[in-house]
Write a protein that binds this DNA or RNA. Structure first.
Length: 210
DNA sequence: TGCCAGGCCCTCTTTAGGGCCTT
């Protein structure tokens, strides 16, 4: 079903915009290879300043926890080794991509893999869902959730499970055995009204090729 | 708590506005 590997990641941060000086405070990620979780990464990181009470309440991450965490530079250096040149996935990837790029830029690094977004795919595949928040989609697809949302590793794990189910649903709906990353990239930017045509045509080409 | 930002996406659109998502 999923031929290539991908790293599913999630950041907890001090706010919404690295351009406004916000920093990462936790990174969580799982590595998927052929649809199986083969590795995990989780670390809190000290942003060098206190976080506000909203972020403490929202994430459950306290200033006391961050005071004893490694600095962002150490954690992000380790994370760069973890992801290597893997392609990347996140729920609302534009948010996580901005923070990954910003934290890497502080280290003189660049993101090597390509991002895709489970939010954009879910809006196309699950048009009847109540909304497309991660937690809502987990309930919508009856995925067991035994943990705390808004913690990085748990959200990454949930995004990965949702991702595999989305790929499976696409596979079943259109009779596809493999869904290459290139098709996912195309799917994420195709208007909703053209999704059926895109996937039907792709399935037709695959069938003819076989 | 919900504004800050930014990209996507819909519509009462495209010379724009506002909701959805992420923390």
């Amino acid at each position: 079903m999923l031929a290539n590997s991908i790293v599913v990641l999630d950041f907890e941060t001090t706010g919404l915009s690295p351009a406004q000086g916000e920093r990462a405070i936790e990174i969580g990620a799982v590595k998927l290879e052929s649809g199986i979780v083969t590795d995990r990464f989780q670390a809190l990181m000290n942003p060098g300043r206190r976080i506000n009470s909203f972020i403490e309440n929202y994430t459950g991450i306290s200033n006391r926890m961050l005071a004893v965490a490694s600095p962002c530079a150490k954690v992000m250096t380790d994370f760069a080794s973890f992801i290597g040149e893997s392609n990347l996935l996140a729920h609302n990837a534009s948010f996580d991509a901005r923070f990954l790029e910003a934290e890497f830029a502080r280290l003189g690094r660049q993101v090597l893999g390509e991002f895709t977004c489970s939010l954009l795919i879910s809006r196309r595949i699950y048009q009847d869902a109540p909304n497309h928040k991660l937690g809502t989609l987990i309930n919508y697809k009856n995925i067991a959730a035994d943990g705390s949302f808004h913690r990085a590793l748990f959200d990454a794990e949930m995004t990965a499970e949702l991702w595999l189910i989305m790929l499976n649903d696409i596979s079943e709906r259109y009779g596809l055995e493999n869904i290459p990353f290139s098709l996912i990239k195309q799917l994420a930017k195709t208007p909703k009204a053209q999704i059926n045509k895109l996937l039907t045509n792709y399935a037709s080409k695959i069938t003819k090729a076989v």
